[in-house]
């Protein structure tokens, strides 16, 4: 259990939305680098040790591929470095390719973290109030998938015990698979309609229904939420005022280092490293307490 995943789902959703949306829609190198580093750090804390290198084995080639492909297809830009098949390969296009690659990999890392933190129960809880029926369908579908797995095993074992399709030939295997699947479809539909009858009998859809959930909004949730909103507001103001505008084409613009734009960089950096810092703080606390025993 990671400490960050114990925050209230609303806070977590706001946090992830604000980070990923801003990463996705900015082209500014500083912001993107901050997001990528923050995402990698956070992801590393969340996953087991060896997963870090497995991630690298996937993301580094992806990164290179995106970075290399852009200058081959895009010939915009004012500074040609060399010519390839009569087409100019420009400095701007190479840098823009790297920039886009950083953005894509950063978003993928953040989505990975999101998938680890936002488990399906949190997802259902978030949308349960706004769209109760849809989220009920979602939660039923989520429950049916493992149920189908169990039932499928039962059906196929029962079939084998009766001596159906127990030979080892390929054709028989496929036919038994089809048979099990067909049984499963019938069974699950009938089972589902019975479920709905049971729901009706217990008064589903009547007024005054209450919800149960384990999530409570506490003081630390309020702190994290207000911090997220504050930092996001700073960055968005900066983007709106154009102090983080950055263009690659036709010529790379100079990076602005006015006091306000530095504030924006710092704000976004803090936002990206927040979960990592929270985890590190918690780890240190744990180590400290352990050392006292």
């Amino acid at each position: 259990m990671k400490i960050f995943s114990s925050y209230h789902p609303v806070v977590l959703l706001c946090y992830f939305l604000s980070v990923t949306v801003m990463v996705m829609f900015t082209a500014h190198p500083v912001l993107l680098a901050e997001a990528l580093l923050g995402g990698i750090c956070f992801c590393t804390v969340l996953e087991r040790g060896n997963q870090f290198f497995r991630n690298l084995a996937f993301y580094v080639p992806l990164f290179l591929m995106i970075a290399v492909v852009n200058p081959l297809f895009s010939h915009n830009g004012m500074t040609p470095l060399f010519f390839l098949n009569g087409n100019p390969v420009t400095l701007e296009a190479i840098l823009y390719g790297i920039d886009i690659a950083v953005m894509l990999v950063a978003v993928m890392y953040w989505c990975k973290c999101y998938n680890i933190i936002m488990t399906s129960d949190k997802f259902i809880y978030l949308f349960g109030k706004a769209v109760p029926k849809i989220s009920l369908i979602l939660s039923m579908a989520l429950r049916f998938i493992p149920l189908f797995k169990i039932q499928m095993k039962k059906v196929s074992v029962a079939g084998k015990a009766m001596g159906l399709y127990s030979s080892k030939s390929r054709v028989d295997k496929v036919r038994s698979g089809m048979r099990v699947f067909s049984v499963m479809v019938t069974w699950s539909l009938e089972n589902a309609v019975e479920t709905s009858d049971a729901m009706k009998a217990r008064g589903y859809g009547l007024k005054g229904r209450s919800h149960f959930s384990l999530f409570r909004f506490t003081a630390r949730d309020a702190v994290l939420l207000s911090l997220t909103i504050l930092l996001t507001a700073i960055v968005l103001t900066g983007t709106g005022l154009g102090s983080t505008a950055f263009l690659f084409y036709p010529k790379i613009t100079h990076m602005s280092f006015t006091p306000f734009s530095v504030v924006v960089y710092v704000a976004f950096g803090v936002l990206c490293f927040l979960p990592f810092l929270i985890e590190v703080k918690e780890n240190m606390k744990w180590k400290y307490f352990v050392s006292k025993i």
């Binding site: 369908i137 039923m140 699950s188 479920t195 709905s196 589903y204 859809g205």
Partner: peptide, 19 residues
């Protein structure tokens, strides 16, 4: 109102497609 049966059938079909 009152389409609980349809809801569960939809849920089953979603589960089947994901499976």
């Amino acid at each position: 109102q009152g389409n609980t049966k349809k809801m569960v059938v939809i849920a089953v079909m979603i589960a089947l497609s994901v499976a």
